[in-house]
Design a protein around this nucleic acid. Structure first.
Length: 945
RNA sequence: GCGGAUAUGGCGUAAUUGGUAGCCGCGCUAGACUUAGGAUCUAGUGGCGAAAGCCGUAACGGUUCGAGUCCGUUUAUCCGCACCA
């Protein structure tokens, strides 16, 4: 049979579509399995070969699971809200909805050509009102819940109010709950809501005109566009993800993710154990240390301040304190003499951009406040400094500085000539003069020295002993700090989910749930307003009529019955944080998803996508899911049980070498002296095959090359190559459509898998695709040898080995080795005169997950009805895998001596006989009789003499 | 600086998880068929050597009868975090 893919593939794609082959039901007796891909953002550039890599892998797995009798949920959708569509809208005036729609159509067309088994009836789009209704709904729930630290879960805010009213909980501020006005109560509750509005320092990107989350900023630049980001205090919505920090850390032990990704998340959450310690202020110059009595230090804000340290064992080495420039206490404690200097420093530090600060990390700066603190353990007076190496957002924004054992404190002390006192040494009593040190001793190893009751202890024990003492004295407590910060949830942009929030007396109120979705309004202009309001400020119909429960004209706002709606929109991660749950029940208009659906599917069994989402989507989604779990919507704590990170596909650029003297002359790569007299220029990889340039097409490529002349080698023009990022400007983007047209979807699928392990980053290189294509042709040719006669033993052996290998490979997610296995099998069978139908039959099913179109065609050639997708995965017969002989490395008394080849299933007597027959064995046995031979196939055997 | 990973022919990779290193594919070499070959088929292809054989999994060392695989040190590359107290 000839392999006519251009005919076969559209035929079966049509068949699948018409027969709803991949429709998946929530009602099934079969075991369930949920295979999910990270849904794409439909960009204008379309798919390149990197995108389908993960989709192909998950599709193979989904098809395999179906063949093994599972009811498989394998959906696809689009993360359709986002910045690029909006940037494009600002530039061209085209509505983002239109460009998004167009891009989705293009993505769908490309995806369909590859033969995926998605259930498209479950498609979701984050910009679809039927979908974002539930994003808004979740936001309202977040707003109406707080994190109860005793129950360790989210609870309705009404529960907190109840406790406050009953007096079971007390407020932190001056006023008690029943003394508060209604407005004060609302403000107070805002400190607890899981979605809250607050003035917080944000990453403000002037160029994009919006704030960004921490994971959207790298090195002080925006991830999208690379624009500078400033720190700015703004009134913003945030999600209290920090409340879940510990559960987000703990949950990592429950999931099957790579260690590296778990580690990335642990680092991002940044849990560190230590102690919070109160340091009293020295009231005046006159305060004598002896007046501060141990155990009587007040932990009150006016007279002391709190620091966080992971090294309480070094408290006897504290020689100064440092506050961050934002610290509220600075103004109060600064002495008149120092005031001017301190104010100048604080102003300077606050105006520094995030990028400047990060770029000049090594530069030491700071200023003395003139004030002193008292070390609560030594009663010693220690100076208080201000420096921007202490960060406002971490811990309490104040530290105790131990220059001998912290490199940053060390640098600071050296710069300002502050004392350095050693309190840890690698060996007990091994003291040196710190003034001779070139660096501090930071590691948590060695022993405490110079530290009274801690002296002589190992550092780890000293830390615990110090905390015990601190707690006993009532000057601090054991505590845990997290690097994770709350997620800023407002974006001053148009193309995102509107907040279901309106403002009455400047305070936010949620829309009634029944009024959702709150539709994104039309605007004249996608840019921010002249007064700096977000684009929704342009909307003419964007006000909330409270009594009539509907959106009305902005002009009607009277702040009595009609109120302004929130103008910012939600960030990209809002829509992607819960989409996997919506796939379970995507058309449900009354609920996010039914309880029955989630009870059946539970959570995602296998999630495939890039590791670049490690600190973004994958954290937010876990948080979102845990919240939904707390409120009884989701049934599993962790959304993604197993996660496979597909590696990034890099580009492989090709170069031609243009002569420096003659712009029309191009020199082939390996011609002597080429390097000196040419410059490499990028050439479109589609004009190159196996690094050989198609000269005619190159001349047609661009007018300037029309008269190109070439210095060839062996009659060919050989191009150079380099691995670079896949990008249009380097002409190294490989479009999957082109490959499908040229080799077929099955070849593309197999080749993407053949390239190497799915998890590994690798450059795209089309050089080997012919081999895979050739394999499919050979596989088809096997069908010319088919016979209805029963298979002989040789064929059955090939078959059963293949079944075992392919099954194991798929279970291990090792698809590159599967492709090799198919090739070996085909090569072996090609040597046969005739191949039995029963063998071919099973091979077709094995191939179906990898190359579904050709498998479908061959399945029908073997006169089956229906679709190969409904066939049964073959099982193998272990008896067919057994080898006839095994090689045994033999040892005597643990010493390796010789190798024997023995038949399979040999008895003790025969083995002993075989050993005795071997001439080398005879020599070593030296006349002694071997008693017993212990043997395991391919393992060492011991002859017991 | 901290953390995680990786290192095997000209190239992509494989190795039953401690048991004959280099399967499969690309590329290359030779041959067959052909008017033709960027088609197909056959054979060969880690290095050195005429051969027997010797050497060989980034480097060095260790454990073991036996190490690509386990342990230690070093080097290189990639990724993540980075003034996080």
């Amino acid at each position: 049979m000839d392999y006519n893919f251009s005919e076969i593939e559209p035929k079966w794609q049509k068949y699948w579509r018409e027969h709803h082959t991949y429709r998946c039901s929530n009602d099934s007796d079969k075991p369930h399995f949920y295979v999910l891909d990270m849904f794409p953002y439909p960009s204008g550039a379309g798919l390149h070969v990197g995108h389908p890599l993960g989709y192909i892998a998950s599709d193979i797995f989904a098809r395999y699971k179906r063949l093994r009798g599972f009811n498989v949920l394998h959906p696809m959708g689009y993360d359709a809200y986002g910045l690029p569509a909006e940037q494009y809208a600002i530039q061209t005036g085209q509505h983002p909805a239109i460009t998004t729609e167009k891009n989705i159509a293009r993505y769908r067309e490309q995806l369909d050509k590859i033969g995926f088994s998605f259930d498209w009836e479950r498609e979701v789009r984050t910009c679809d009102p039927g979908y974002y209704k539930w994003t808004q709904w979740t936001f309202i729930q977040l707003f109406n819940h707080y994190y109860d630290t005793d129950l360790d879960k989210a609870m309705p805010i009404s529960h907190l109010i109840e406790q406050l009213e009953k007096g079971e909980a007390t407020t932190l501020g001056d006023k008690q709950w029943n003394e508060m006005s209604d407005a004060e109560r609302q403000d107070y509750l805002m400190n607890f809501r899981l979605a809250y509005l607050a003035d917080i320092p944000v990453n403000w990107c002037p160029e994009l005109g919006t704030v960004l989350a921490n994971d959207e900023v790298v090195n002080g630049l925006s991830v999208r566009g690379g624009y500078p980001v400033e720190r700015k205090l703004m009134r913003q919505w945030s999600l209290r993800i920090t409340a879940y920090a510990q559960r987000l850390v703990d949950g990592l032990n429950e999931v099957e993710w790579t260690d590296s990704l778990k580690e990335i998340q642990r680092n991002w959450i940044g849990r560190s154990e230590g102690a919070a310690v109160w340091f009293p202020l020295a009231k005046s110059e006159a305060t004598r240390p002896e007046e501060i009595l141990m155990g009587q230090i007040e932990t009150r804000e006016e007279t002391s301040f709190e620091i966080f340290t992971t090294r309480p064992d070094t408290i006897f080495g504290v020689t100064f304190m440092v506050l961050c420039p934002e610290h509220e206490m600075i103004e109060r404690i600064t002495t008149p003499e120092q005031r001017q200097e301190v104010e100048a420093y604080v102003t300077w530090a606050k105006n520094r951009s995030e990028r400047e600060r990060q770029a000049e990390v090594k530069k030491v700066s700071g200023v003395f406040t003139g004030a002193y603190a008292i070390n609560p353990l030594t009663s010693e007076r220690i100076p208080i400094w201000v420096s921007d190496y202490v960060l406002a957002g971490y811990g309490t924004g104040a530290i105790m500085a131990v220059p001998a054992h912290d490199s940053r404190d060390f640098a600071f002390a050296r710069h300002f000539d502050l004392p350095i006192r050693q309190v840890v040494a690698l060996e007990p009593d091994q003291l040196t003069d710190p003034s001779t040190w070139t660096e501090s001793l930071d590691a948590k190893t060695g022993y405490s020295v110079n530290s009274r009751f801690l002296t002589g202890m190992k550092v780890k024990d000293a830390i615990n002993a110090a905390i015990d003492k601190i707690e006993e004295m009532g000057i601090g407590r054991r505590t845990v700090n997290y690097r994770l910060r709350d997620a800023i949830f407002s974006r001053q942009r148009y193309w995102g989910e509107p907040f279901p929030i309106y403002y009455k007396n400047n305070r936010p109120y949620t829309l009634p749930e029944e009024c959702l979705p709150l539709l994104l309004p039309e605007v004249r202009d996608f840019k921010p307003t002249a007064s700096g309001e977000p684009p929704l400020g342009h909307a003419e119909v964007w006000a909330w009529d409270e009594a009539n429960r509907r959106v009305v004209e902005t002009s009607k706002i009277d702040n009595e019955t009609v109120f302004p709606l929130e103008l910012s929109t939600m960030p990209g991660f809002a829509g992607s944080s819960g989409y996997y749950l919506r796939y379970m029940d995507p058309h449900n208009d009354n609920e996010y998803f039914s309880h029955k659906a989630v009870d059946y599917w539970q959570n995602v069994d296998l999630y495939v996508g890039g590791a670049e989402h490690g600190t973004g989507h994958l954290i937010y989604a876990r948080f979102w899911n845990k919240f939904l779990y707390d409120i009884g919507i989701s049934v599993k704590q962790e959304p993604f049980q197993k996660l496979v990170n597909q590696g990034m596909i890099q580009g492989r650029s090709n170069f031609v070498y243009r002569s420096k003297e003659d712009n029309n002359l191009f020199v082939s790569k390996n011609i002597a002296g080429r390097e000196e007299r040419t410059v490499p220029i990028h050439v479109d990889i589609n004009l190159v095959s196996n690094d050989i340039l198609d000269i005619e097409r190159f001349r047609q490529w661009r007018p300037e090359f029309a008269d190109a002349r070439f210095e060839l080698e062996d009659g060919k023009y050989v191009c150079g190559w380099e691995i670079e990022k896949m990008s249009k400007s380097m002409y190294n983007v490989q479009n999957p459509d082109d490959l499908v047209a040229r080799y077929g979807a099955d070849t593309l699928r197999l080749y993407e898998m053949f390239l190497g392990p799915v998890e590994q980053a690798k450059p795209w290189d089309t050089n080997g695709i012919e081999g895979v294509h050739r394999f499919l042709k050979k596989f088809c040719k096997l069908f010319d040898l088919r016979t209805s006669a029963a298979a002989d033993k040789a064929q059955l052996k090939i078959l059963h080995q293949t079944i075992k290998k392919i099954t194991d490979d798929i279970e291990r997610f090792s698809f590159n080795t599967s492709v090799s296995t198919f090739m070996i099998c085909t090569n072996d069978l090609s040597g046969q005169k005739a191949v039995s139908n029963e063998v071919l039959d099973k091979l077709v099913v094995l191939l179906a997950p990898f190359a579904p179109h050709i498998a479908e065609e061959l399945y029908h050639l073997l006169e089956h009805e229906g679709s190969v997708c409904d066939a049964e995965w073959p099982s193998y017969d272990p008896a067919m895998l057994v080898q006839d002989t095994f090689t045994y490395p033999v040892s005597f008394n643990g010493k390796m001596r010789l190798t024997l080849e023995l038949p399979n299933g040999i008895s003790q007597e025969e083995a002993i006989k075989a050993v005795k027959a071997d001439s080398l064995a005879q020599k070593w046995l030296d006349g002694k009789e071997p008693k017993r031979v212990i043997f395991v196939p391919n393992k060492i055997i011991n002859i017991v003499v």
